[in-house]
Amino acid sequence: MNCPLELTRFIALLASEFDDLDPNIIGSDSVYKEVIEWNSINSVVLSVIIEAEFGVLLEKEDYQKAVTVAELLELIQTKSD
């Protein structure tokens, strides 16, 4: 289970990069491919900020596996261990 502080920090990180994303209406169960307009630019933007923040370069399959914001963070944390 993710610590809420880490989740809050992760949501703040996403909000800092994606202008139209309101951190107040995103929760652990939010589907990140819905809150972020999922296209070929944004998928690269997301990979770049995750790599810069956590040192983890996610694979295409990872984005298929993780559906919610919490699942994505959990996957990143697993890979960074």
Binding site: S40, S43, V44, S47, E51, E59, K60
Partner: peptide, 11 residues
């Protein structure tokens, strides 16, 4: 595939 290109560039 821009994602794959990114992985190639960084990895």
């Amino acid at each position: 595939d821009a994602d794959q290109v990114l992985r190639f560039c960084l990895r």
